[in-house]
Simulated scan of single mutants.
Amino acid sequence: MELESCDIIKSQADWFNQNPEKTTSPESVEFVADLYRAIAAGLATDASSLKNTRAPFVACLSRSRDQLSQWRGYANGGYALGFEPELLESSLQLVTEDGVATPGEGDPYVAKAIYLSHLVGERVDQMVQDRMNDTIEAIKAQDSAKKDKAAGKFTDSVIEIVSTLKHMKFYEEHEYRIVSRCRESFFTPGSLGLIPRAKASYNKKAVQEVIVGPGAFAELRKASLERYFSSKKGDFGAVAVSQSAIPYREL
C-alpha cells in the first residue's frame, strides 16, 4: 500500500510538469514536481520501518447487515454485532491488556474504506497540497528540526490514507474501519506467528443488535442470547436479537 501511494504521489509530479498553467505558481513548477518525487522516494525508502514503528492497527466493520459472503468469509455461522455508529466512535478508547484506559494520541477513530482508485488519487493529491507549504518552508529555512517535523506530518497523513485502502473486488463488503496509531499492548498466536494487538474499549450501549448467523441450532442460539441480554440490560441497554435471513448451511 505504501508503494501504491508513492506511485500516486509521483504521478502528481508528472501532472505539474504537464499542466504548469493550472498551478498557482507556474514559475515554481519544476521545484514542486521535484519535491513530490523526493517525498515519494523518501516514503518508499522508509516503508519497512513504517511497518515496524508507525503502522496502524485496524479492526474491520461492514455496512452490510446480513451478507452471505461476510458470513462465509469471516463469521463461519457465528454472530454479527450491530452498532449505533456515533456512540461507538465517541466512546472508543485504547486500553491496556487489563482494561486500563490509556488516553492520548493514537486513540481509535472510524474511517470509511476506499475502493475506487480515482478517489485515492484525489485524497493523496489533497493531502500533498495541504502539506506542501510546511515542507517548502522547512526546505527554505534549512532547519533540520522543521524538515523532520514536516516529513513526520506528511508520513502520518499518508498512513492515514493507506489505512483505508482496499482492493475494488471487495467493494460489496461496504467496509468501515476502526483505526489506531499506537504500540501493541499484547500478542496472540496465529498462523503467521505472534500477532501484535492493540486493545480498545467502547460503551456497551453502542451495541444495538446481535444477528445469529446461518447455521445449525439458530433458534436455540437466538433464545440463549435473548436470555443473556435480558439479564444484562444495565450494561447493554435494549439489544435486539435476530436471525440471519439467509438459508445457508455448512456441509
Rank of each mutant, 00 (worst) to 15 (best):
G42L: 11
A44Y: 13
L50E: 01
L50P: 04
N52P: 04
R54W: 03
A55L: 00
C60P: 01
C60A: 01
C60Q: 01
L61P: 02
S62N: 05
S62P: 05
S64F: 05
S64V: 05
S64Q: 15
S64P: 02
S64I: 03
R65T: 14
R65S: 15
D66Q: 06
G73Y: 00
G73E: 02
A75I: 06
N76E: 12
G78E: 11
G78F: 11
G78L: 12
Y79K: 09
Y79S: 09
Y79M: 10
L81D: 03
L81I: 12
F83D: 05
E84W: 08
E84Q: 12
E86T: 13
E86Y: 06
L88Q: 00
L88P: 04
E89Q: 13
L94K: 08
V95T: 13
V95F: 04
V95A: 02
T96N: 09
E97M: 07
G99S: 01
V100P: 01
T102Y: 08
G104K: 04
E105I: 11
E105C: 08
G106V: 09
D107V: 00
P108R: 00
V110Q: 00
K112V: 13
I114N: 05
H118C: 10
H118R: 14
L119W: 12
V120E: 14
G121Q: 13
G121M: 07
E122Q: 13
E122V: 07
R123K: 15
V124Q: 06
D125A: 15
Q126L: 11
Q126T: 11
Q126G: 13
V128D: 08
Q129N: 13
D130K: 15
R131E: 14
